[in-house]
Simulated scan of single mutants.
Amino acid sequence: MTELSLVSQAAFQPGNTADIADALMNASGMRIEIDRRRGRAAGINPAGRFESQERVAFDDGWHTLEDMPPFRTEVQVEKPRTVITRNDSPDIPFDRSINPYRGCEHGCIYCFARPTHSYMGLSAGLDFEAKLFAKPDAPRLLERELSKPGYKVKPIAIGTNTDPYQPIEREWRIMRQILEVLDKANHPVVIVTKSALILRDIDILKSMAERGLVKVGISVTTLDRKLARTMEPRASTPAKRLEAIKTLSEAGIPVAVMMAPVIPALNDHEIERILDSGKAAGATEASYVLLRLPLEVSPLFRDWLLQHYPDRYRHVMSLVRSMRDGKDYDAEFGKRMKGAGPYAWQISRRFEMATKRLGLMRRSLHLREDLFISPNSDGVQLSLL
C-alpha cells in the first residue's frame, strides 16, 4: 500500500472520527474528479471501516484518470430471509420497519444510513449513492411474516433508513407492491420520503387513509433550491415536496412536514419558513431531527461542507460539537435526535413556538390496529383479544 493508503486506513479506525476528515483532506488525490461524480453529493469514496486496504486513484503521468468511467447507478438483487426489521430504541416511535432498498440514489450527504454500506464491503461515500441493492422478494416475505400465528399488529415504518421512493423505485416498484400487501391486510403504515414519486401510489394511500391506516411524512430540509441541489442532489426539489404535501392532504391523507436534519448555521434559519410552508400546503403534524454524523458520515459531510460552504465550515462544526458534548456525534439515547446544550435548546424552543402558533401537532395521530386481516385467513378478520 502507498503512504496515502496507510494514512486513510488509520483515520478510519473506530473511535478516531474527529480526525478522519483532516486526514482525508490533507491526502491529495482522495477527492474524485467532478466529471466522474456529477449529480452526486459525496466528493470522496473511502473504503468502509471494516476493510483492510484503501485504493486511491492518482495520475501516473499517462493521463489514465481521463479513462476512468463515471459513477453510474448499479442495482443488485438482495435476497433477505425476512423483511421486517425490529428495534427497541426508546427514542424512536416505532418498533418495526421495512427497507425495500439498501443504499439511496438521492445521495443526501448527511444521511445517517450511509455507514450501513460498510457491511456490504462498500464505501459509505459514492458507493452508497451509486451501488444499490433492491429486494424484489420483499412483498412476498412481508405477506409470509404477516401470516405467522401470533403476529401482533403495530404500525410499520417505511423510509426511516433509505427512501422507498428513490428514483429506482420507478422501475422496480417494490414499494407499491408492499403497499398492496399492507392494504389487503388492513395493516397500518407510516411512510417517510423526500420524493414526489409517492403521488404515484395515491390511489392505495387514499383508500388506506379512509380506514385510518396510513400517515405520510414529507421531509423538507430547505426551501433554497441551490442548497437542496448540492446537499441532496437526486431528491425532489423543495417545491415538488410541498406540492406533494398539498396533493396528499387534499386526497384526505394525513401528512406531516419533517425537517430532518436541522443543520446549524446552514438551514436552521429556515425552521419557521419551512413550517409555515408545510402548514399552508396542508400538513397537520411536524417534527425535526438534529444533524447526525455517525462513523463515516462525519468525514463525508465535512468534506462536502469544505467544498460548497468553506466560509461556514468552522462555524457549523463548532455549533454541531457544542450540541454533541464536544464531539461530531453522540449516539446516547435521548440526545442523538435533538442534541443537548443551549443551542439545541434554542432550536427546540423555536420549533415548539412555531408549531404551537401554526396549530401543527407532533405525532398525535394514532393509526388503527383493529382492522388487521391475516393474508392467509381467507378474509376472516382476526381478533386482537
Rank of each mutant, 00 (worst) to 15 (best):
D224E: 13
M259D: 01
R55E: 12
T116I: 10
L371P: 12
E66K: 09
R31C: 13
M259R: 04
Y119W: 11
L306P: 00
E33C: 00
I32R: 09
V77N: 11
T222L: 07
V75W: 01
Q177W: 02
S322R: 07
S277Y: 03
S5K: 03
G159C: 08
L126T: 05
M68P: 04
W62N: 11
R81Q: 14
D201C: 12
D328N: 12
T73H: 09
H63P: 00
L290I: 01
A251L: 04
L300F: 03
L306F: 06
E270D: 13
L24W: 15
F128M: 09
S383D: 12
D203A: 15
L360N: 02
A10N: 13
K135M: 04
P310I: 13
P188I: 07
L132K: 03
E169V: 03
R229N: 12
Q53R: 13
L227V: 15
L132C: 04
G121I: 02
A18C: 04
M1A: 14
G39Y: 08
V289I: 15
N45Y: 06
S383K: 11
L6A: 12
D91Y: 07
H366G: 01
E250P: 05
R324S: 02
A281L: 07
M25S: 15
P139T: 10
Q9G: 00
V255N: 01
R363G: 06
Q53N: 12
K148S: 10
P70Y: 08
L179E: 13
I253P: 01
I347N: 08
P164F: 14
M323I: 09
G212Y: 10
Y288N: 04
S123M: 04
R273G: 01
K246G: 04
P261H: 00
N267M: 04
P155V: 07
G15L: 12
R363T: 06
S298G: 12
L126M: 09
Q346G: 07
Y288F: 15
Q166D: 05
L179T: 07
L182G: 10
L275H: 01
Y329T: 02
L199T: 14
K194C: 09
P342L: 11
D163L: 08
K152F: 07
F128V: 01
V216G: 12
L182Y: 10
L205H: 08
L182W: 10
R292M: 11
M175W: 01
W345K: 15
S147I: 08
D22G: 06
I174D: 03
G125R: 03
R302F: 00
E272Y: 05
L24F: 15
L291T: 00
L300Y: 06
L227I: 15
Y288W: 15
R144A: 14
Y119V: 05
N186K: 07
M25N: 15
P254Y: 07
R336C: 06
A41Q: 10
R225F: 01
D311Q: 14
D330Y: 01
M25K: 10
P136N: 07
G341Q: 04
A138F: 07
H366N: 11
M258K: 06
R312L: 15
K356D: 11
R176S: 11
G278V: 13
A134L: 11
W304H: 11
N267T: 13
M353R: 15
